[in-house]
């Protein structure tokens, strides 16, 4: 058997202890693009963000309305299930707490839905209390389409497939409904620190 290297990633930075979940490596300055489909280019005048499903009343923000919501900046580490991690990524956007404020619901789960048909499911408790954002800015610039622009979900404490690119809304559900990768044998929750890559991990 020949030795297979991981490839040239340039000079490795020293990763501070405790920053990388098990089985992950630091991708450094790179930012790999993983896509399961064509990149949608939704024009901003057609973009909106919806909160729907098990809610007292559906919420909808146009792009202009979304821009007027209170904004937050976050610096977080992100971890992809394909084993790369990227440290200290800088994002800006709207907290999911802001989008769900005043929503009356009996739901315990959410399904994030995106342009192109992508979905991912999460417990409602994992997107509230300052744990998730809808971000439209990365590293000081408008979020590039290949990284999920105009806007993507950001849930940094779970594997990055939960941070749906091209997100257009949250559907609140009483029952947990597996999304695109979750229905394909990926872990339903996806905690990188417990290495929950596949169902049964």
């Amino acid at each position: 058997m020949s030795f297979v290297s991981r490839g040239f990633t340039g000079r490795r930075r020293a990763v501070p202890a405790g920053r990388l979940p098990p089985g992950q490596y630091d991708v450094g300055d790179g930012f790999p693009v993983l896509s399961a489909g064509p990149t949608p280019y939704t024009s901003l005048d057609r973009w909106d963000f919806r909160v729907r499903g098990q809610v007292d009343e559906e919420r909808r923000w146009s792009w202009a309305e979304f821009q007027k919501l209170p904004r937050e900046s976050v610096v977080v580490d992100v971890h992809c299930v394909t084993s790369w991690s990227k440290l200290d990524t800088r994002w800006e956007g709207v907290s999911v707490d802001t989008l769900l404020a005043d929503v009356v619901t009996a739901a315990e789960f959410v399904v994030a839905f995106s342009d192109g048909g992508y979905t991912t499911n999460l417990p409602l408790a994992d997107v509230t209390d300052g744990q998730a954002w809808v971000v439209d800015n990365y590293d000081g610039r408008p979020l590039a389409p290949e990284h999920g622009g105009p806007a993507r979900l950001l849930v940094p404490h779970l594997y990055l497939w939960k941070s749906a690119k091209w997100v257009r809304g949250l559907e609140l559900t009483v029952e947990d409904e597996p999304g695109f990768w979750e229905s394909f044998g990926y872990h339903n929750y996806g905690d990188p620190w417990r290495e929950q890559r596949y169902a049964g991990d």
């Binding site: 790999p32 693009v33 993983l34 896509s35 399961a36 489909g37 064509p38 299930v81 394909t82 192109g116 048909g117 497939w161 990768w181 394909f184 990926y186």
Partner: peptide, 19 residues
Amino acid sequence: PLYAHAPALVIRCPKCAAV
């Protein structure tokens, strides 16, 4: 069309882009 840079190989319909 095949999208190979994802956690799985994803093959889509050439007409409607469904998986």
